[in-house]
Amino acid sequence: MNKITSSIAICLLSVALISSCKQDRKLPFYGERHAEVKKDAAGVDKIDTVYQTIPAWSFLNQDSTLITNTATNGKVYVADFFFTSCTTICPTMHRNLMTVYNEFKANPDVMFLSHTIDFKYDKPSVLKKYAQKLGVDGPKWQFVYGSKDSVYTLAEKSYLVAVGEDSTAKDGYIHQGYLVLIDKDKRIRGAYDGTKQDQVEQLKKDIPLLLAEYKK
């Protein structure tokens, strides 16, 4: 009898331990980092890690309105790079992202930001039509257009997504299908292959985790 009680206790304890471990799971930080010495409230020097952040940007959105990085202030957002005439990975990426969008539609702290890499053709009016046909309306999911230089630099240096023109590719451009998760402090906290369903499911689980970090 004693043996049974103790084994039940051990089981319960390990279950509790495992579940508490899960709750503590924190998303990683991506990109470059460096240490900075800062004085805390008491005036004592403390070493702090500073992570890579998304710099300021300003683009035209699907309504031909200029939007800037301030639109993402106080929000967790998912960024990606695509173009409307893409017939390869983009439809899959946006089909999958659409399910994420629908899941967090009612959450004002979540946003979506899709950058076109087709600076020649994807003017705001084209983006608007694309968004409507995809079934997206409203400011929660922004489709933005910018100069080649500004978008490509932001993609490669800040979001760490490879993009490029390629005349040998079927649609004229090549790019990676990552959905990049950015926290409220504009740090990169996740990158998910938007063409793979299991990774998109992971993104759906990670967004609430990230939001929970700010609920203290």
Binding site: T87, C90, P91, T92, H94, Q132, K133, L134, G135, T195
Partner: peptide, 16 residues
């Protein structure tokens, strides 16, 4: 075909 027309042939919004 699947990237636009979907795994179950369901299409994609009004795009496909």
């Amino acid at each position: 075909c699947q990237n636009c027309h979907g795994e179950a042939g369901e299409g994609l919004g009004e795009l496909a």
